[in-house]
Design a protein around this nucleic acid. Sequence first.
DNA 1: TATAAACTATATTATATCATATATTGATTT
DNA 2: AAATCAATATATGATATAATATAGTTTATA
Lengths: 108, 108
Amino acid sequence: MSRTREGELAAQNMAAKAEEVALLLKTLSHPARLMIVCTLVDTELAVGELEAMLELHQPHLSQHLTVLRAARIVEPRRAGKQIYYRLTQAKAAELVGALHAIFCRRPE
Amino acid sequence: MSRTREGELAAQNMAAKAEEVALLLKTLSHPARLMIVCTLVDTELAVGELEAMLELHQPHLSQHLTVLRAARIVEPRRAGKQIYYRLTQAKAAELVGALHAIFCRRPE
DNA sequence: TATAAACTATATTATATCATATATTGATTT
DNA sequence: AAATCAATATATGATATAATATAGTTTATA
């Protein structure tokens, strides 16, 4: 295979992967959504609990949860009047872990 | 300090940090910009080289480089007619490394 | 001054955000 | 079982921001 043809393929593979990852980053690139995902990283929480912890207005929170649900980053479970959310994507959880390690560690 | 006051502080600290990180994610959440940053992760490259590797139209690429420059993720160095770009933020580089580890590893 | 490399401006179109108002769903009381 | 309440979701609309193509501009060298 010619070198330029190889380059085209490499660019296309990279573009496909970049599109997938960029989409996830975009979904997480709002402070509220990032906080939601961070808060859910090691526990399931009801909407009302998130609301209290993050100090977000209810419809606003709900709208962001809708975005995260659509992206399949988060999944709801109904229990009576309340709806509990948890992370569903291992990769998203790993990413949050990495972000925490990079940006929230103590500066040496 | 009261428990609710503590909670407010925690929420505010988290919000401040989330805003910073979300901004970075947002800057990287476009496929072209993500590819640019990935490509620069271990080498400096001229605009023309990026153009060829990523198969992007020149003004399009240049506009994305402008965004990355404004975010101080990338820095230009002029050498004659050409302008070489390189990463300047250790944290951004670490993030790209983490993304690579999470999303580009072979599935087991 | 002509050319190559890269940047900037402009205009169009598409998306995202967020507040307010309204709807749904399940539990509780009468 | 109808009315009510509490928890959450959805709809709507106003405003802001982002993406991208085309055209024009700058800078450096030959």
